[in-house]
Computed example of a mutant assay.
Amino acid sequence: MKRVYKTTEPFRLEGTGERASTQLLLIHGFTGSPSELRRLGYYLNDLGYTVNAVLLPGHGTTPEDMIRTGMHDWSGHVLRSYDAMAARQAREGKIVAIGHSMGGLLALELAMKRRLDGVVSLAAPMFLSSRKTSLALVLQYFINYIERRPSAAAHLMEEACTYDKTPVRCVVDLRKLMKLVKANLGQVSAPLFVGQGIQDGMVLPKSAEYIYRHVSSLVRQIEYYPHSSHGLLLDEWRERVYEDISRFLARLDQVGTWKQAVVENQT
C-alpha cells in the first residue's frame, strides 16, 4: 500500500497478527488534521495495531468551516468514533486513545466517559505559554480570525495541514475544554502515558506533570523530550516518541495480569 502524507483525510489501517485486536483511536490537535498523525499511524500499524485516525468537525477544510463548530462538536465526534470502534471490537480486544495537543484533551475527556484500555496524551495543554488566548473571550465580538505568524516550525505545520488563521470563537471553546478536563482529571483511571516536549512554544511543560499528578490511573508514565517542539510527532526527534508509545502499548498486555495480582493480594 502506498503511503500518503500531507492530506487532511481521516484514515483507518487494519492491523495484522495478535495486535490487530487492539484498536488505536488517533485524535489530532486544534486547527490541525489527521496528517499530523500519519507517521505515527504507519509506525504503529507496522507493529500490527489497527489504527483509526479521526477528522474533527470544522478541521481539514477551511477556517470558515471551523468557526461554525465548538467543543461539543469535537467531543461528540470522538465519542461517536469510539462507539463505532467498540461495536466492532473483538471480545479480547482493546481500545486505546492517542491524542496530540487538543486531541490529548479529547482523549482524556473520552476516558472520563467511556471505558478505555489506555490513554496517550501528548502535549495536551493545561497551561498555555501565551496569556493572549484569554483575550479571545472579548476579541470574538470584534474579529473572527487571527492570522498565523511565520515560525521556525512552519514546515511541521505544513505537514500537519494546519490552518493559516485561527477562528477566535474556537479559541474560546478550546479554553473551555481545557478548563473542563483540568477540573475532572480525577475521573481518568485508565492506564496513562503523558508525553511533553521541553521546547514546546505553545504548551508549558508543567502541563504534563499536572496531568500525571491529578489522574487516578494506577498505571501511569510520563516522558519529557528535551529537544522536541509542540510538533513532537513530526519533528526530528519523533522516533523516540514513537518508540516510547509502542513500549507503553506493549505494557498494556501485562496490565490485566497485574491488576488481577493486586486483587488477589488484597483478598
Rank of each mutant, 00 (worst) to 15 (best):
T7L: 12
R12N: 15
A20T: 05
L24I: 10
L24H: 02
H28P: 08
G29L: 03
G32T: 02
S35G: 07
S35D: 01
L37Q: 12
R38K: 15
L40N: 05
T50E: 06
V51I: 15
N52L: 07
N52Y: 15
V54A: 10
L55Q: 01
G58F: 06
G60F: 06
W74A: 08
Y82L: 14
A84Y: 10
A87R: 12
R88G: 04
E92K: 09
V96T: 07
V96I: 15
A97N: 10
I98G: 15
L105D: 07
A107D: 06
E109P: 06
E109V: 06
L110N: 04
K113T: 01
R115A: 12
M126W: 05
M126S: 02
S130G: 00
T133L: 09
T133Y: 10
A136T: 02
A136C: 01
L137P: 00
L137A: 10
Y141A: 04
I143T: 14
I146K: 13
R149S: 09
R149F: 00
R149T: 05
P150E: 06
A154T: 14
A154K: 15
A160F: 08
P167G: 06
V171N: 06
V172S: 02
D173V: 00
L180N: 13
N184C: 09
L185Y: 10
L185H: 13
L192D: 09
M202T: 03
I211D: 14
V215W: 01
V215E: 05
V219E: 14
H227L: 08
L233R: 14
L234R: 03
D235W: 03
R247H: 02
R247T: 00
L252D: 02
W258T: 00
E264T: 07
